[in-house]
Design a protein around this nucleic acid. Sequence first.
DNA 1: CGATCTTACGGGATTCGTAAACATA
DNA 2: TATGTTTACGAATCCCGTAAGATCG
Lengths: 318, 318
Amino acid sequence: MTKKQIDVFLALAELGSFSDAARHVGLSQPAFSLSIQRLEDAMRMKLFQRTSRTVFLTTEGLHFLPLARNLMQGWESTFAQMSNVAAIRNGRVAVAALPSLAAGMLPDVVTHFAEKHPLVQLEIRDVLHGNVIELVRSGQVDFGISVDPSTDLDIDFKPLLHDRMVAILRKDHPLAHQETVSWEVLSTEKLIVMTRATSVRSLTDRAFAKAQITPHITMEVDQLATISGLVQVGYGVSALPSLCLPVVARPDLTWRSIVNPEAERSLGLLTRRRHDLSLAANAFLDEIYQIVPNGVFSAFRDHIRFESDAQPAVQRSR
Amino acid sequence: MTKKQIDVFLALAELGSFSDAARHVGLSQPAFSLSIQRLEDAMRMKLFQRTSRTVFLTTEGLHFLPLARNLMQGWESTFAQMSNVAAIRNGRVAVAALPSLAAGMLPDVVTHFAEKHPLVQLEIRDVLHGNVIELVRSGQVDFGISVDPSTDLDIDFKPLLHDRMVAILRKDHPLAHQETVSWEVLSTEKLIVMTRATSVRSLTDRAFAKAQITPHITMEVDQLATISGLVQVGYGVSALPSLCLPVVARPDLTWRSIVNPEAERSLGLLTRRRHDLSLAANAFLDEIYQIVPNGVFSAFRDHIRFESDAQPAVQRSR
DNA sequence: CGATCTTACGGGATTCGTAAACATA
DNA sequence: TATGTTTACGAATCCCGTAAGATCG
């Protein structure tokens, strides 16, 4: 009792002729006839009453007709649903990203993705690095975007772009006349930094520690927007990774690479080991690869280096 | 994308191991593996993520899981329903029969049938001969039980029993001392007959006409029960086909064959030409064949002859 | 007699099982 | 290295199409 037999049954029930129905399902008439016979044998009952001239359903066939229709309909509906899945008209993509990335990079990606796949649910978790890892590891998100969690063996990392620490300055600030700024010089300025919980702050701290310099911290804030506001009014300067630039950039502000040492880091995709991405997540990733070098970051090319490999991290076969 | 593949998919999804699942569906492990691959190819997407050690569903496979379950369930439920049809735990049998047969013969049949097939709906149309034919011809009933409609080419007739006209008398009536009664003698009695519309009455009329005798009709009634009541109080006698005996028999009444000429007729099954009976109708027919010679009519063996062939009229192959 | 379904039979595709190769924890 | 999946290949099965036969109107 196969699906094809149901097809054959319905064709005969609806067309009332072996020859016509056979043509309809693309079988020779004898093969069609055998198919009906096999179905009847499998059911152990006659479904059609036939003479050489007429064909019609028996009482039992009449019982079977609505059931067969249901089966075929269910079959078609699942096929349609899975087609939707394959065509990514359906489903859900969850991404965890550092807040700066979630604010700077993802809006463009989301816009383009939603245009192509309007029915796919999107979920962006803008959380700190540790949470990104946890969400990726537990499978609550399809992938993460953060810095390299090299210690973690359960998570694959694929670099996407590289940023560096830059000094955030008012355009009329003396340091703005230099091409680069050293950590040393920066430590003499009034420094506005993020609070300790953030990854940006730990980055800053590590950079100063590495340069063996103690900065002069004049203010700690929770939000990047606050930093740009404070710098703009001349309250001080800041040091931030360049990927924050889309968020903090204002007409009166400028930025310079910080050197000695130059503090570069890698941002990239975090995926569960041995877990391929879903089709929808992959499509989202494609969008990222297309947008990242050409989106908001393109204005900051001098300070952000993109991975040349613009292919999805995990290519799924078939 | 076949039913078997769904089976294979569900087994793997639920057991999480190719080997176990293969054993579960009765395939060798490589064959099982190929089956999964073919399904994935047909769907154009990976449904399982596998390493040599672990197997689990991809996001797409997770989408497919409930759909596959539904399909399989629908399939099983149709199979169960059709099993019910095959086992006659289900369905409907409609029979049209002359009122005298419906009252005399069918109750026993119905009782036995309902015992064996409690869930089958039964419908008895106790109508006159012309209506029996119409109901059979139009397919509104599965078959009819009536006299031979020899003129009708759309209807097959198969005799079931033969009855004859008998005189209905009080036991103390003079004619009750004879073994038989002639139409001639009967015409001198006060005769109670059915109204003109009934087949019993037309039978009576024809018998008298054939004997070229005019009866002395003292009363016309609509119901057989009324006749037995009137005969019992001595208001007159009656002439009825012997199959009415189960309905009219009372302790004080008796009956004698009417001869010169003896008026025998055939009662039997009326079926649509070239229309096999449903399994349920056939089962009902079996019951009739078992009951008729041993049921209520057995008390009237002298006046009712049964067809020796106690097989259903239409045997359905597979 | 003609249209239509059924039976018979040879060819081809699919699917199966055994054995070997491969991959991962 | 051991367990478990994939690949390779020969064999059996199933299903199809052509051709001949049977049946009903």
